[in-house]
């Protein structure tokens, strides 16, 4: 006697197969999320206005397969804002968040900080043949006077990796590697800020 379940499968499988194959064609979306600790460092006696421009807030990166198909669509803007929101108040005496550089003029601050992402790279084990997922991010940081004049403009890079594990999905691994990269950004930024030559000179002259 034939099992009804087998009969149903025989009917449904040919119908479902094209749908499953088509489903595999879309890019997988990864929204980077994580928690970031507050830096355990002394505060600088500076009042700072921070501008998150649209490029940072809406930053996305698309990883393409070797055949040119969209493979992963990574949204990382909000995680960067969450990171800066945790780090900056621990680094400076007073931090104000403003919509744009012009709005900082009336805020009575010492300087305006504008972070931006310049480049984002992802390395997947399937392509590198290494047992790690890697994320590399390049930033452009700008520090301006309250009136919008140049104070400093410097580049930072951050790197994060996470090893492959049996039950770890690619999306989770990308997220974990990106969170490590964000922690790397925060640690480098916090420890190197006052060593940037222009900032060091500006702090000495205040």
């Amino acid at each position: 006697m034939k099992s009804p379940a087998i009969s149903i499968c025989r009917i449904l499988l040919p119908a479902l197969l094209p749908a499953l194959l088509l489903g595999a064609c879309g890019a997988n979306s990864v929204v980077i999320s994580g928690s970031f600790p507050t830096p355990n460092i002394g505060k600088l006696p500076i009042s700072l206005a921070v501008v998150y421009d649209d490029n940072l807030q809406e930053f996305t990166y698309t990883e393409y397969s070797e055949t040119g198909q969209e493979e992963y669509y990574i949204q990382s803007g909000q995680s960067h804002i969450q990171l800066f929101n945790a780090v900056l108040p621990a680094m400076f005496d007073d931090v104000t968040f403003v919509d744009n550089v012009e709005a900082a003029a009336g805020a009575g601050v010492d300087a305006v900080f504008v972070p931006n992402i310049e480049e984002f790279q992802l390395a997947l084990p399937a392509k590198t043949r290494l047992d790690v997922y890697e994320v590399w991010i390049k930033y452009n940081m700008r520090l301006l006077t309250a009136e919008g004049d140049y104070l400093a403009d410097w580049e930072l890079t951050s790197y994060g990796k996470t090893p492959t594990e049996t039950f770890l999905t690619t999306e989770s691994a990308i997220n974990d590697a990106a969170v490590v990269a964000l922690r790397d950004l925060a640690s480098t930024f916090a420890l190197s800020f006052s060593r940037v030559p222009e900032i060091s000179a500006w702090l000495a002259n205040r």
Binding site: P39, N40, Y159, S187, T188, A190
Partner: peptide, 25 residues
């Protein structure tokens, strides 16, 4: 301890730890 013991900032030698411990926090 953030950001003192991250992969890029962690002390590699005991002399680095001695230097790190001069940071009050």
């Amino acid at each position: 301890m953030f950001p003192w013991f991250e992969p890029r900032t962690a002390p590699l030698r005991t002399q680095d730890l001695a230097r790190l411990m001069t940071e009050e926090q």
